[in-house]
Design a protein around this nucleic acid. Sequence first.
DNA 1: TTAAGTGTTACTCATATTGTTACACCATTT
DNA 2: AAATGGTGTAACAATATGAGTAACACTTAA
Lengths: 145, 145
Amino acid sequence: MRYSHKLSDAVHILAYVEIYHDSDLSSGAIAASVESNPALIRRLMSALRRADLLTTQQGTAQPRLTREPAVISLLDIYRAVEDNDNLLHVDDKTNPQCIVGGNIQETLRGAYQQVQRAAENQMAQIKLADLITEIWTREKQRETL
Amino acid sequence: MRYSHKLSDAVHILAYVEIYHDSDLSSGAIAASVESNPALIRRLMSALRRADLLTTQQGTAQPRLTREPAVISLLDIYRAVEDNDNLLHVDDKTNPQCIVGGNIQETLRGAYQQVQRAAENQMAQIKLADLITEIWTREKQRETL
DNA sequence: TTAAGTGTTACTCATATTGTTACACCATTT
DNA sequence: AAATGGTGTAACAATATGAGTAACACTTAA
């Protein structure tokens, strides 16, 4: 597969809506910032809306966050846009007549769950507000050059 | 992309080599257990050899682990077979003239590194020996049915 | 020397993501 | 009310990666 950056683009959209809340928030304007196309932006916004992170209004470009960036985590966004939310994947076609093939699937599933949990715990601790703050900090640094 | 299960198959190979060390260890025999094909097995074994986890001998089916399963971690195997070893991916084509587009890449890179580190720490704690033990335990339970 | 295995490459197939286009529907403005 | 410009969604093409397959030089062992 191609390496997905849906999560990155979704964070981009939410940060954009927050930072530019008084400017043009049309899918076209956001697409220009993401260097993508309006349809992709609207698709991702649909997912964010289904996850109750964003509200939109058909016909008018007025997306708004449903909560404060401080209480939106990277994990919330990840779950909103990555429907298959597993980072590692078991090979579910192995020979059950073999000691290894017959038992490795469940074994690996348990191990991968532990890895998943560790990653998700970390994602839960990273808030959209943290990311927006860092974006601003980096912007200030860029301006002084 | 299709969801990669190279890691799962690589663990399968190593467990197979350990458990069946006195039986047929040809790529064909392992492929039958993985329900895959010999070329894929040999490709993965090449990667495991490059990572110094496995030794092989051309012409004869004698793969051997280079160390005890207790000192081979899931992380070692992961790094051996996943050449792009990042679980999350930054969109590296964003508009630098925008506050968000110009700063989100580095911001997300840092956040993703934290997630990666958490996942890798967990992978480092899971040893091949643990997985093999669990495979045996499950096999014993299957036998009693 | 023959048989069987490895190591590697090239090619095809399957699938997931992104790009593109289209169009019904909605809101605002004139 | 008509025109304009936006959203929401679906269909399709383009692209990229993983996995399947076949081929072949090289190696080992009988």
